[in-house]
Every structure is written in C-alpha cells, then in structure tokens.
C-alpha cells in the first residue's frame, strides 16, 4: 500500500459519501472542505478510510492535513507505525 493507493481509497469514499461529487475530477492536492464536503461528511470519509485500512487509532490523531494527499500520507504513516 502506498500513498497514491490511499488517495484512491479516500476519493472513492468522497464520491460514495457525497454523490454530488461523483463526476468531479478530484486529486491529491484538493482539500475536502474546498470541494464542499462538510465537517460531518469529512469525518465519515476518514472513518471509512480507516476501516478499509484496518487502522484503529483515535480520530484526533488524524487532525491537521490540509489536503487529500497529506491525509493519505498521514494515514500511511499511522498504518505502518
């Protein structure tokens, strides 16, 4: 699993959670807030990604990333360590 694969997982979860974004081009430099994903939806997306990665850590440890790529990097770091 590398960061780009986690980006794909996150993007798939974004499209699942916010159907309005199904057709929208989304990349690792985008921030979920700028895409119009609200804070409740953001938490759902992060929880779903954690579930897929089998990651069991407090959510507050995933606070801080400014875009999808940074979130993927952090999820990767937490998964491997």
């Amino acid at each position: 699993m590398d960061s780009d694969q986690i980006v794909e997982i996150i993007i798939a979860e974004i499209r699942e959670t916010v159907p309005e974004l199904a057709e929208q081009a989304i990349g690792r430099d985008d921030s979920m807030a700028d895409l119009g994903v609200d804070s409740i939806e953001r938490s759902e997306i992060i929880l779903a990604a954690m579930e897929q990665l089998g990651l069991k850590i407090p959510m507050v440890q995933l606070h801080g990333p400014r875009n999808i790529g940074e979130l993927a990097d952090l999820l990767l770091a937490k998964s491997s360590g």
Partner: peptide, 12 residues
Amino acid sequence: GDADLSLMAYLD
C-alpha cells in the same frame, strides 16, 4: 475553536 478537531474528539 477548531470544528474538525472538536468533531473528532466527540466521536472518539
């Protein structure tokens, strides 16, 4: 405050 962090803490 920080709405995202607060939501995460609430869920935890």
